[in-house]
Write a protein that binds this DNA or RNA. Sequence first.
DNA 1: TTTATATATCGCAATTATTCGATGAATTAA
DNA 2: TTAATTCATCGAATAATTGCGATATATAAA
Lengths: 98, 98
Amino acid sequence: MTINKENLWRANFHKALGNPVRLEIVDFLLGGEQCQCDIFPRIGLAQSTVSAYLTQMVRAGVLRVRKDGVRKLYRISDLKVQRLIEQNRNLAREMVDL
Amino acid sequence: MTINKENLWRANFHKALGNPVRLEIVDFLLGGEQCQCDIFPRIGLAQSTVSAYLTQMVRAGVLRVRKDGVRKLYRISDLKVQRLIEQNRNLAREMVDL
DNA sequence: TTTATATATCGCAATTATTCGATGAATTAA
DNA sequence: TTAATTCATCGAATAATTGCGATATATAAA
């Protein structure tokens, strides 16, 4: 069983997006950079939970952080990631019959 | 917390790809349609495990099956899915060892 | 019909994910 | 300095995932 470093990265990336709450966060960030303090009330889960999710997505390469005083601003890490997210979203729109 | 049907589909799709063994299977299928009997020895996990993984990926819209006698032939469900898989793989190539 | 092959499903144990509240640390405001 | 804000981390409870072997089912071959 060839479990190389690349496939671990890929799996981890998909795992980070494999949760509806984290997708909600990601969708919010498609609208632009936001601080954790604005993200977690919007999401409606505990601050500790959202904090851990954001950290996970940063480690997975989905998001990027920068500090701004006490706050931490999160955004989609880059354009390729954004495109991948949007393609998946479009796929879902096609597949789900409303 | 707005957990709509679309985001559940998206999460499920990513979840299906969020595992290095399942990515191994998917990579094998990028080379063309294969039956389960050829997939599971290549992967090196139990037949029951691979069977469940394949079913999961079909339900998630990643794969497609068709019957051929006793066998079941699996392939990547469509071109959009294939492109998404390849983009993620290219991303990993860039990100790993940098 | 009996046997062999291909796949599905069940129950189980081990690991990982989800989510919380409590608390800690850092920074800014009063 | 004290108080308030923002974020991280810990421990705990519950749920989900991972992977196996055993077994069931369906089809094909003998």
